[in-house]
């Protein structure tokens, strides 16, 4: 199981790339989830020994995070996709405003959410656990939340 640690202080990460979309536009086209995840996963994997394979690996979770925000975001305002890195990790972060009834389950961060009527939450955490990627969330002012996943910067997948 993955330790759901408090995220390291953000200062340790530097920004690599970012993409901001109008949430209404993003939510109008499901296929964008796949497009954006493949795009981000390619960058996440770029310094790996086998980029094609690590991109496939990381896109599995990134896509789930993006689909999750696709389903949970209020259809107004903006959604921010960011890639950050430090010496060891590449962090994928997605910041958006969720519809309010989704929020409590997220912060519970666990697969018991399936039982609470939000299978998507359970699936997201379940996938991260299964493939051993550290996933965590942060709450912000004005109801915004950030979903974050930390991928290895260098080492190859087993």
């Amino acid at each position: 199981m993955i330790e759901r640690q408090v995220s390291p202080e953000p200062g340790a990460f530097e920004q690599m790339a970012s993409l901001t979309l109008d949430t209404a536009l993003f939510r109008s086209e499901f296929h964008l989830c796949d497009r954006v995840s493949e795009y981000l996963a390619d960058i996440v994997a770029q310094s790996h020994e086998d980029p094609a394979r690590y991109a496939n690996f990381s896109s599995q979770l990134i896509n789930e995070m993006i689909e999750f925000s696709f389903r949970s975001a209020v259809p107004t305002g903006q959604i921010d996709f960011r890639l950050l890195k430090n010496e060891e990790r590449v962090r994928v972060s997605i910041e958006f405003a969720p519809v309010s009834d989704h929020q409590p389950d997220w912060l519970a961060n666990d697969t018991s959410a399936i039982a609470n009527g939000h299978p998507a939450v359970g699936d997201l955490w379940g996938l991260a656990d299964a493939i051993r990627v550290n996933l965590h969330t942060e709450e912000h002012k004005e109801n915004h939340v950030t979903l974050m996943a930390d991928f290895a910067l260098l080492e190859a997948v087993r």
């Binding site: 496939n56 979770l61 379940g126 996938l127 299964a130 493939i131 997948v157 087993r158």
Partner: peptide
């Protein structure tokens, strides 16, 4: 083994 996520996911 080419697809690194698939066995761990189906193991669940």
């Amino acid at each position: 083994s080419v697809i690194a996520w698939s066995a761990p996911l189906f193991e669940t």
